[in-house]
Simulated assay, not measured.
Amino acid sequence: MSAETAMEDKLAQAEGLLLQGQDEPAEQLLARLAEDAEEYVDRNCPTTDEVQWFDFPTIFERLAYHRVESDPRELRDIGEPLERLYGDFALAEVQLGDYDGAMRALKQAIRWNPMNCEHRLNLADLYRVSGDMKEYLALTYSVFERASDAKHLARAFANFANWFASTKKPRVAAAALRAGRRLETGDSVLEAALKESKGTDHDPDEVSDAETQELLGKEGLPDGANAEIAICLLMCATDAAGVGERDLATKLTVRARDLVGESAAMALLQLIRADDVDSKATHDSKGSDGSGSCASA
């Protein structure tokens, strides 16, 4: 495969075409890039029982994947922006009305970065449009464990709220809306659902926080973010701060705060710092590597 910069240049060209409304030439360019990428992967990057290849944009996604998926295989970087390629390809296919093609592209985007929940939610929407509610709900459910952006989590709650409302479970729908509202993201899908629910039997004001946890728990749903994801964000924030990348550290910390709330985020951060101190002490006394670092993933 050509150098990474060459693919990025071609992706920028395709994205420019999409912005100009030239969907067909953009789709043709992206299709050629995808074909070349697939040939390269088949020849050079086989998946085995020991090795898996990914396109994680940062160390955070790599760490989060390790903690959430418990994949014992060695993770290797493909070295090309394949997630971006297939995300763009999916957009082009949607613009041209080829939803089946968009679904195939989104599956590839998820394959290369399983932690990007935007792709999962977009694919879920396409399954909903096609009438496959089982896959729609399964993909939405998968977001709860992986979401590192509060807006994605809010959208997942909105999806389930709409489902519960349509299946005559108004109090559970209200609970899902309440859980989503607590995130305070301003997500358009959730805001529309909240506006529609006002004064109805699935108004989130009709249930308490305690009832929300109970009602969602009975349906097998959480009432908030996965703490493991917040921990990963804060571990990477701590590492970033340690090497002087303060802007990145702040962004990661804010993402964790938005997921679990300020008090919970600060409590987790204190635990991580304490673990780092213990790991350093162990390293100093035994000469072993500490495991409290994001970079150890």
Rank of each mutant, 00 (worst) to 15 (best):
V41W: 09
V277I: 12
T282E: 15
A225W: 03
E8D: 13
S291M: 12
Q22D: 14
D55A: 08
I59D: 13
A12D: 13
E219W: 09
E118I: 02
E80C: 10
G287P: 06
C294H: 03
C45A: 13
D278T: 10
D276N: 14
A105P: 02
L216E: 00
R104P: 03
D100Q: 12
R182V: 02
L85G: 04
G244L: 01
Q22I: 00
A165C: 05
L234C: 02
K280L: 14
Y86W: 10
L85I: 05
D203L: 08
D88W: 11
Q22P: 05
T47D: 12
F56A: 03
R62C: 07
L75E: 09
D278V: 13
L137R: 12
L121N: 04
S142N: 09
E4D: 14
A64D: 05
G199N: 08
T48M: 04
S293A: 14
D98R: 10
T253R: 01
L30H: 05
L106E: 02
D49K: 09
E38W: 06
L271F: 08
G97D: 06
E262C: 02
L106Q: 08
D49M: 09
D275S: 13
H66V: 06
G261K: 01
D284I: 07
K280S: 11
R84L: 07
Y136G: 00
E219P: 05
A124M: 05
A64W: 02
S293G: 10
E24A: 15
D203Q: 07
L106W: 08
R67I: 04
G220D: 10
P57T: 06
D289L: 12
T185Y: 05
R171K: 15
R181F: 06
Y65D: 02
H283S: 15
S293I: 00
S288H: 12
L194K: 07
A274V: 03
A109P: 01
